[in-house]
Nucleic acid binder design. Structure first.
Ligand SMILES: [Mn+2]
Ligand SMILES: [Mn+2]
Length: 546
DNA sequence: ATCACCCTCG
DNA sequence: TTCACACATTCAA
DNA sequence: GAATGTGTGTCTCGAGGGTGATGT
């Protein structure tokens, strides 16, 4: 099925887009829809066009409460007439119970002053000062009508249902209805991957419910709800997707972190012991350390890792072992191998830009240009070289037209599932064909959304210069490390790259201002660079005293 | 009058 | 409404 | 030095309007 762009200048373009989404969902996910959702889809299509349009307008807005007198859409015309069928369906309510905060935000400051004036409030109060009065006069549960104003308020009752439809279509809740029009206008451009008719983001209703539950708990945690409360309502998974298992594990890990902060140590510990997420073991080691139970902590360090882990956790565990060996009077395992990295220092006049730019301009010369690229350059080179593998139409990887990345990008088996394709891409570094591959892909993919491609950095001249100065062997080593852990090894690259085109050489520079220190992921890249003879140095900056 | 912020829209 | 990075505070000797 | 927490700037387009808080 193709997404037909809404015809140019169609005043009901958004309705057209909404129909596209409903058709897509009905076509592919019919077996996962509840009766209520089925009913919505079929009944919606039978409404008069103005009513459909009004409903979609409201669905796309923040809401969920709207003052009728603020709604004006020329392509719809009579709002009251369009709303009537929606109210009859109970999709809109005009008599919802509203809490006082909602009333407060629906009223303008002037209206509030007029209401409060008769009650003897000064006419120059700030809006917030009238909130307590409103709360007393119109407590939670009042209808809008109680205020005695002319206009009605419509409350959209379809929020949860529409979230589900959006989730089914996009496979996430972060993309919105606006995607369609933004793509129509070319503001967003997504990779054009053939999508199998049977490709789906979800395969069971239980998985949808799990996603929504995780999302809900995650929101609650972000909002500062007590971690014990969040824990109490968190359920085990009802589906068996590894994708959701990972999201679930990540939520539980963050929840346990928050439990620690709130002093619920036992609950946190229990989560960590059953949470297969990188960092869980380290947290338990830290907890034991805090209790001065050094032998238990030591034992946990030694215990072979059957659980998920990553380089960051291994690095922290190694440090813990050094500390613990000291406490226990054991031989130090092996001091952390801090690679020999060149360092330099600079004293610069104070500038109003960031340190990185200051060093960049200081070192810059026409024959040895410096670029502030951080992760963008190597991510970009990698993305362009390995595009065919990253965006191969593997089963389940792409299931709607607005994906900037394959759905399983951060699954542990992402690379192995595409092993052969990645080998083909990487082999291009051995026969020189990587040059044309990267050049061509840059030209053809220009502007596409991708987590690897930052088009502000990837200009043709920088790319050419970089390809000229960076030996293929270095790229190969770097890309291999990225492939080993696409999530973690995509960051931590040095701030600057200086190119010496006439010598076909380059150097990477990590800038450190006063009081800034190397982060762990930066240190891991530095260590790796030293092992592979990749030229990199750390440049410490002090400010000239005025 | 001016500014900052949020929301809407295509 | 994330993510990577910089910056600040506290603790242990 | 290490661990941990907090800010900060990229922020998903950019124009345009409404709103409320300032200041003169
Ligand atoms: Mn940096
Ligand atoms: Mn830096």
């Amino acid at each position: 099925m193709h997404m037909k762009p809404s015809s140019v200048a169609n005043p009901l373009y958004y309705l057209h887009n909404f129909h596209q989404l409903l058709d897509w969902v009905a076509d592919r996910y019919a077996d996962l829809l509840s009766h209520e959702e089925q009913h919505f889809i079929t009944t919606f299509a039978r409404l008069e066009e103005p009513s459909q349009a009004l409903l979609v307008r409201l669905i796309m807005r923040k809401g969920p409460h709207f003052r009728a007198d603020k709604l004006a859409y020329t392509e719809i015309g009579d709002i009251k007439g369009a709303a009537a069928p929606l109210i009859a369906m109970n999709w809109l309510q005009n008599d919802a119970q509203l809490d006082s905060n909602t009333l407060f935000s629906l009223l303008s400051r002037n209206e509030l002053i007029n209401l409060a004036h008769s009650a003897g409030h000064p006419p120059h109060a700030r809006k917030a000062e009238l909130q307590p009065w409103l709360q007393r006069q119109f407590p939670d549960g009042c209808g809008w009508a109680a205020l005695g104003l002319e206009t009605e308020v419509y409350s959209l009752a379809l929020g949860a249902l529409c979230d589900r439809l959006r989730l089914l279509f996009f496979g996430n809740l972060s993309q919105t209805w606006a995607e369609f029009v933004l793509v129509d206008q070319g503001i967003f451009r997504y990779p054009n991957i053939p999508i199998d008719r049977h490709s789906r983001g979800f395969h069971s209703r239980a998985a949808i419910d799990d996603y929504l539950a995780i999302h809900h708990s995650s929101d609650a945690l972000e909002a500062g709800i007590s971690a014990l409360d969040v824990l109490a309502q968190l359920q085990p998974l009802h589906s068996d997707s590894t994708w959701l298992a990972q999201r679930h594990a990540r939520l539980r890990f963050r929840l346990a972190r928050q439990l620690e902060r709130e002093g619920a140590r036992q609950e946190a510990w229990d989560i960590y012991t059953t949470c297969n997420y990188p960092g869980s073991r380290l947290r338990r080691i830290r907890m034991l350390e805090q209790q001065a139970d050094w032998s238990a902590a030591w034992a946990l360090c030694q215990q072979p890792g059957s659980t998920a882990t990553d380089d960051a956790e291994q690095q922290l565990i190694a440090r813990a072992q050094v500390r613990l060996a000291g406490k226990l009077g054991l031989a130090r395992p092996q001091p952390e191998i801090t690679a020999e990295t060149r360092t330099s220092s600079l004293t610069l006049p104070v500038v109003d830009t960031c340190v990185e730019l200051a060093v960049s301009t200081h070192l810059h010369s026409p024959l040895s240009p410096v670029h502030f690229v951080e992760n963008s350059l190597f991510n970009g080179l990698f993305g362009l070289l390995c595009w065919e593998a990253l965006y191969a139409p593997m089963p389940g990887a792409f299931f709607h037209p607005f994906q900037s990345a394959p759905a399983d990008l951060y699954q542990p088996d992402f690379v192995t599932r595409r092993q052969h394709l990645f080998e083909q891409c990487m082999a291009r570094l051995n026969d020189g064909s990587y040059l044309t591959c990267i050049r061509q892909n840059r030209q053809q993919l220009q502007g596409l959304q991708s987590p690897f491609l930052d088009w502000r950095i990837l200009r043709a001249d920088l790319l050419e210069s970089a390809l000229h100065c960076l030996p293929a062997g270095h790229l190969q080593a770097i890309f291999q490390r990225m492939l080993a852990d696409l999530r973690n090894n995509r960051s931590g690259f040095p701030d600057l790259i200086q190119l010496f085109p006439d010598k076909a050489r380059y150097r990477l520079i990590e800038v450190k201002g006063p009081g800034d220190r190397l982060q762990d992921n930066q240190r891991r890249w530095l260590t790796f660079a030293a092992e592979h003879k990749i030229p990199v140095e750390v440049c410490h900056v002090c400010w000239e005293s005025a």
